[in-house]
């Protein structure tokens, strides 16, 4: 489904991605973990073409992601941005229904609003937030609106950049379950970035750990504890000593 090979990206002399290789199959839920600033968000944005990589190839369904019809390519994707990235000039439901009312579907306003409210309900938001503006919501609520927008058009591939950061533990559980449901029921392919180990266990089929610009370990979730990989072990146990320098 998604095939990333030898991906490089630097910002000036900051070499963020230094040869990422990663592949995921259709209907799989991949979770990416790694320290802050290791380039996880940059990786997702590179796949979407929001950041142009320096070198390397990205294949989606066997086709080069950088070539061909951008609209058709992006129509397969939903993306939850780390910061929410809600349009603050539009109300909450118009944010969620943004793609539904435009593009190929062009649903009528009432129908689109109905779907938006249903998606908001799935992320634990009541219908009365639909007409508010993003700036009037709490951080965690904004995150969930972003999540609702990412899943609104029922895309084939969904990227979640830290979906549970800033949520309370109960709401985190709800969101973890929702992501799992989307993968299982809708057959979507999901790539999730998270720092939350309970999310990893709830969501992942496969895990990839990124450090120093490359994938240090990747494998199925049930091998996470027994990998023997020093980077992964240090990360999972939250130790300050190990191959990952704690003071950077």
């Amino acid at each position: 489904m998604i095939e990333i090979s030898n991906l490089h990206k630097s910002f000036g002399d900051n070499h963020v991605l230094a040869g990422i290789d990663l592949s995921m199959a259709k209907g799989e839920s991949m979770v990416i973990i790694g320290g802050s600033g290791t380039g996880k968000s940059v990786l997702l944005k590179s796949v979407l073409g929001l950041i142009t990589p320096d070198s390397g190839t990205i294949l989606v369904n066997g086709k080069d992601a950088t070539a061909g019809d951008r609209d058709a390519f992006l129509a397969q994707f939903g993306m939850l941005f780390q910061g929410g990235a809600l349009f603050d000039s539009l109300s909450v439901w118009q944010n969620v229904a943004f793609r539904l009312m435009r593009g190929e579907q062009k649903l009528h306003k009432d129908k689109a609003r109905e779907i938006a409210i249903e998606k908001l309900r799935r992320v634990g938001l009541k219908a009365n937030v639909a007409d508010r503006f993003p700036a009037e919501l709490s951080g965690g609520m904004q995150k969930r609106v972003g999540l609702a927008r990412a899943i609104a058009a029922e895309p084939d591939i969904i990227f979640f950049d830290e979906p549970t950061t800033g949520l309370d533990p109960i709401m985190s559980g709800v969101i973890n379950e929702l992501i799992r449901e989307i993968v299982v029921e809708m057959g979507a392919t999901a790539m999730t970035i998270t720092h939350d180990m309970s999310s990893v266990r709830a969501i992942a089929d496969k895990v990839a750990m990124i450090h120093d610009g490359i994938v240090q370990w990747t494998g199925p979730i049930d091998q996470l504890e027994t990998s023997g990989n020093p980077y992964l072990d240090q990360f999972l146990n939250g130790r300050a000593e190990g191959p990952i320098e704690a003071v950077r």
């Binding site: 929001l50 993306m79 809600l86 793609r99 593009g103």
Partner: peptide, 20 residues
């Protein structure tokens, strides 16, 4: 100011991913 804010809060990126 409006568009720059949209840029730094990734709203422009979000527009692109929503095929706009």
């Amino acid at each position: 100011a409006e568009i720059a804010t949209m840029k730094v809060t990734e709203q422009l990126d979000a527009l692109v991913t929503l095929s706009t």
